[in-house]
Nucleic acid binder design. Structure first.
Lengths: 234, 234
DNA sequence: CGCGATGTTGAGATGCCTCAAATTCTGTGG
DNA sequence: CCACAGAATTTGAGGCATCTCAACATCGCG
């Protein structure tokens, strides 16, 4: 069984989810219906793990509600967020194909609902639908490019620039209200909570953002973007 | 046409290449023959580009001879090596599926020969062979995990540890004679030539490595590995 | 009301980059 | 075969960005 607790769902709900899901565009309604039919919903409370790095992969996961972060954590306690997934975004495109554990973990950042498709069925479906495969490859390409960009950024960009980059990326994805703590932003920027806070203080001083506990509001998106173009992929 | 200059090859040569190539294990001899039949060889002189970041992808590439590095370079001149590909290793697993340009470039580090398969034919072949697809997914999974590990390393590891990590990885892949300059090692470790050189000086002092211009010999693999476990994927 | 999580700011330590100069090696052409 | 140019190596000194540690304020939740 998957982690999390089973929750009822109607075929229609699931169809609507998959129909607009990332990677599933270009599929026929019939095929959407088919893959949605293989899925069930599971609920995860805030902070609950969806999967851990040592878990073998048994399901393909697609976020239906809430927000799930996919991250890598080292033995020394450093965490780097790899992906923030909201409704319609898959958590593990690779895992189903290999079944092997990876170094990534996923946990719900809020109460969340995740659609689960048994791995074997998902792979069978994917292989039968080249459009889906191509979409998956496109997404993986962006993921690899994004990871490599972050490596370059770690080398050549200062902390402030990396934080700005994270904020512009989040702005594009979630709008100007970003419900994350500075610690969470730090895990995206690859730095410490303190350094992130100092950067936020500067951006606040510049009138670019406002922030409350667990919330950043981007007041002047234009100014923020002028500090950094070329967003990441999160 | 592909970059590089066409070079003659026999069907047998190409069959032998694909038969042992990374990602092509588990395919029937007949299928190996088929994909090898779609390919031709191209030669690239030392320093010649195999593809550049702005190039749309027209071919799937597989190294037959020599060594090709796949890297990302930023506008400010920083280069990060993503992959060192020797005989039997593919350069671009994603590109053929999407056709779009990526942020990666590839160039020959020595005189090299690369097998080229027209993208459309390669994709058609891949989709018809789920074993190959699964293999590709496995490789991509390692690539993403490796990239994410490198990000974590940039945050929590010192330069010396990163260089050691690079050396252990190269040791596993190429043996104890590593024909790279310190500049090239720096691009793998995400640091500067000088810092790499200083680390090499220390390792030499510890009796772990010896080095000449463009060559590092690992004298005491055991000592090196004791400094760092869990290799990267290059 | 109190406790844990988050935010805030300061001061200090330091790892690493940057710049610079000198040396050694390679191979190329005269 | 030698001279020379270019690349790679080596080492030093200086500066600074960022992490670390620390103290304190603030918020929200049980």
């Amino acid at each position: 069984m998957a982690r999390g607790s089973l929750v009822d769902s109607t075929p229609e709900e699931r169809r609507d989810l998959f129909a607009r899901a990332m990677g599933f565009d270009g599929l026929d309604p019939k095929q959407i219906e088919q893959v949605a039919g293989m899925s069930f919903y599971a609920r995860f409370g805030k902070g609950a793990p969806v999967f851990l790095q040592e878990d073998p992969c048994e399901y393909f996961y697609l976020v239906a509600q809430g927000m799930v972060k996919v991250f890598i954590s080292s033995s020394s306690g450093v965490c780097i967020t790899y992906l923030l997934a909201k409704r319609g975004e898959p958590l593990n495109l690779i895992g189903p194909f290999t079944g092997s554990p990876r170094i990534l973990s996923a946990e719900a950042m809020q109460d969340s609902v995740v659609a689960c498709v048994p791995r074997a069925e998902f792979v069978e479906f994917a292989v039968a639908n080249p459009v889906l495969l191509a979409n998956i490859m496109t997404i993986l390409g962006k993921a690899i490019d994004s990871a490599n960009s972050r490596i370059v950024d770690m080398v050549e960009k200062r902390v402030e620039q990396r934080v700005v980059r994270v904020l512009t990326t989040l702005l594009e994805k979630f709008g100007s209200e970003i419900k994350l703590t500075s610690g969470e932003l730090a895990e995206l920027a690859g730095t410490t909570t303190e350094s992130t806070l100092r950067t936020m203080a500067r951006l606040r001083g510049l009138g670019i953002v406002e922030s409350r506990r667990g919330l950043v509001m981007i007041v002047s998106p234009a100014s923020l973007k002028s500090l950094d173009d070329q967003p990441l992929w999160v």
